[in-house]
């Protein structure tokens, strides 16, 4: 009897946790297949082993954004954290998710907060692009035009669509042909 009970007590611990590299391999497969819900689950598995793994955190946040889970949501009356809450929960770690946070705030129409968040970031083409979109939504079409024109050298695909929209909204439709040159 004794050895049997020994074996029984061993079974729960005898299953080793899956190797991190295996989890990342499956995570990558889900990302490639755009299966973002599964990707979040895999990232969570990595985080249950290494709670501060930067790649897993980034994958989780991006997967939630790509899955349109920006705000918290309910599954069977249980609240699940959306991308913004997840970003906030990792705020104490030295991982820069400022752009992601600003984007989430923009998507949730918290436009002033999004601008404040962007101000703390380096002004590169990504942050300027997001800023232009926020300004447009705030009704500041003139300011949006200015930022879009700053961005014109960055060769962002389809940027001219937003620039034309801003010009028209700003009452500068006469400048549209020149902008499209």
């Amino acid at each position: 009897m004794a050895p049997k009970s020994k074996e029984k007590s061993k079974t729960p611990t005898s299953q080793p946790p899956p190797a991190i590299e295996d989890l990342f391999t499956s995570l990558n497969n889900h990302i490639q297949g755009s299966e973002f819900e599964e990707a979040v689950k895999l990232a969570d598995k990595v985080l249950s082993i290494v709670p501060t793994d930067e790649d897993a955190i980034r994958c989780k946040v991006v997967a939630l954004i790509k899955d349109d889970k920006i705000d918290d949501y309910l599954i069977k009356d249980v609240k699940i954290n959306g991308a913004l809450s997840v970003i906030n929960s990792f705020q104490k770690l030295p991982i820069d998710l400022g752009f992601h946070k600003a984007y989430c705030l923009y998507r949730l129409n918290k436009l002033d907060e999004a601008l404040v968040c962007l101000k703390g970031l380096e002004r590169d083409s990504e942050t300027l692009l997001l800023e232009s979109q926020i300004l447009y939504r705030l009704g500041k079409a003139d300011a949006c035009v200015d930022v879009c024109q700053k961005l014109s050298k960055s060769e962002i695909e389809s940027l001219e669509i937003n620039l034309v929209a801003a010009l028209i909204t700003a009452g500068k439709a006469s400048q549209v042909p020149k902008a499209l040159e």
Partner: peptide, 17 residues
């Protein structure tokens, strides 16, 4: 006028190769 969410394309997964 149409405005596109171009910033969305700036958000991408890290390289986990």
């Amino acid at each position: 006028p149409i405005v596109l969410d171009l910033a969305y394309h700036c958000i991408d997964f890290p390289d986990i190769e």
